[in-house]
Lab assay of single mutants.
Amino acid sequence: MLEGKVKWFNSEKGFGFIEVEGQDDVFVHFSAIQGEGFKTLEEGQAVSFEIVEGNRGPQAANVTKEA
């Protein structure tokens, strides 16, 4: 699992990017966010995740919000 911070997330469109120190930003789709209820992320929020190869390159999977 990697750790990063949410760079930005558009809850209307359901996607955004996660910043990872020393690496390129990683695309995140709302469907990759773990948990119940409305799936969104806040700018600057700490998250842990895995990287998988998507249709358009690397993207986040199994995203969990850090306490």
Rank of each mutant, 00 (worst) to 15 (best):
M1A: 11
M1R: 14
M1D: 06
M1E: 08
M1F: 11
L2S: 09
L2N: 09
L2H: 12
L2Q: 10
L2W: 12
L2V: 12
E3Q: 15
E3V: 15
E3G: 13
E3N: 15
E3P: 10
E3A: 15
E3K: 15
E3T: 15
E3L: 14
G4M: 01
G4R: 01
G4H: 02
G4Q: 01
G4C: 02
G4L: 01
G4S: 03
K5V: 06
K5N: 05
K5C: 05
K5S: 05
V6H: 00
V6Y: 00
V6L: 04
V6T: 06
V6P: 00
V6I: 10
K7A: 05
K7C: 06
K7E: 02
K7Y: 03
K7H: 08
K7W: 03
K7P: 01
K7V: 06
W8Q: 03
W8F: 08
W8L: 03
N10S: 13
N10E: 06
N10C: 06
N10P: 02
N10R: 08
S11C: 05
S11A: 15
S11R: 15
S11V: 14
S11P: 10
S11L: 12
E12H: 13
E12M: 12
E12G: 09
E12K: 14
E12V: 13
E12P: 07
K13L: 11
K13I: 09
K13E: 05
K13R: 13
K13A: 10
K13H: 13
G14W: 02
G14Q: 03
G14E: 01
G14D: 01
G14K: 03
G14S: 02
G14H: 04
F15D: 01
F15Y: 15
G16P: 00
G16Y: 01
F17E: 03
F17P: 00
F17I: 06
F17A: 04
F17N: 02
I18R: 00
I18C: 02
I18W: 00
I18H: 00
I18F: 03
I18T: 00
E19Q: 14
E19D: 07
E19F: 13
E19P: 01
E19S: 14
V20R: 12
V20Q: 08
V20H: 08
E21M: 15
E21S: 15
E21V: 14
E21C: 06
G22P: 03
G22L: 06
G22H: 09
G22R: 07
G22Q: 09
Q23M: 12
Q23G: 11
Q23C: 04
Q23L: 12
D24R: 15
D24C: 05
D24S: 13
D24K: 12
D25A: 06
D25R: 04
D25Q: 06
D25E: 06
D25K: 04
V26R: 02
V26I: 11
V26Q: 02
V26M: 06
V26G: 00
V26C: 04
V26H: 03
F27D: 01
F27G: 01
F27P: 03
F27W: 07
F27V: 02
F27E: 02
V28I: 09
V28W: 02
V28L: 06
V28G: 01
V28C: 04
H29F: 11
H29V: 03
H29W: 05
F30G: 05
F30N: 06
F30K: 09
F30P: 02
F30Q: 08
F30V: 11
F30S: 08
F30Y: 13
S31P: 05
S31H: 11
S31I: 06
A32C: 04
A32N: 11
A32F: 06
A32M: 07
A32D: 14
A32Y: 05
A32P: 01
I33T: 02
I33C: 04
Q34E: 12
Q34D: 12
Q34H: 10
Q34L: 13
Q34S: 12
G35A: 10
G35L: 07
G35N: 09
G35V: 11
G35P: 03
G35I: 09
E36D: 12
E36K: 09
G37H: 06
G37Y: 06
G37C: 05
G37W: 06
G37F: 05
G37R: 05
F38T: 08
F38I: 10
F38M: 08
F38H: 13
F38G: 07
F38Q: 08
K39W: 06
K39N: 07
K39A: 08
K39L: 11
K39Q: 13
T40K: 09
T40P: 03
L41H: 01
L41M: 07
L41C: 03
E42I: 11
E42M: 11
E42P: 06
E42F: 15
E42Q: 13
E43K: 15
E43H: 15
E43C: 06
E43I: 14
E43T: 14
G44S: 06
G44E: 04
G44P: 02
G44I: 02
G44Y: 06
G44F: 07
G44A: 06
Q45K: 06
Q45T: 09
Q45W: 15
A46C: 05
A46V: 13
A46M: 12
A46G: 10
A46Q: 13
A46I: 12
A46T: 14
V47I: 08
V47M: 02
V47R: 00
V47Q: 00
V47D: 00
V47F: 01
S48Y: 11
S48D: 05
S48P: 00
S48F: 13
S48K: 15
F49V: 03
F49C: 03
F49T: 02
F49L: 07
F49M: 05
E50L: 09
E50K: 08
E50T: 12
E50S: 08
I51C: 04
I51L: 13
I51N: 03
I51E: 03
I51D: 01
V52K: 11
V52R: 10
V52C: 04
E53S: 12
E53D: 14
E53W: 14
G54H: 09
G54Y: 08
N55T: 13
N55Q: 13
N55G: 12
N55R: 13
R56Y: 15
R56M: 12
G57W: 05
G57T: 04
G57Y: 05
G57I: 04
G57F: 05
G57C: 04
P58G: 06
P58C: 04
P58R: 12
P58F: 11
Q59V: 10
Q59I: 11
Q59Y: 10
A60I: 02
A60Q: 01
A60W: 01
A60S: 05
A60L: 02
A60V: 03
A61G: 08
A61F: 10
A61K: 11
A61V: 10
A61T: 12
A61H: 12
A61C: 04
A61E: 08
N62H: 10
N62P: 02
N62T: 09
N62L: 08
N62R: 11
V63A: 03
V63W: 00
V63K: 00
V63Q: 00
T64Y: 11
T64C: 05
T64E: 08
T64S: 12
T64M: 11
T64Q: 15
K65A: 12
K65M: 12
K65G: 09
K65R: 12
K65I: 15
K65P: 11
E66Q: 15
A67R: 12
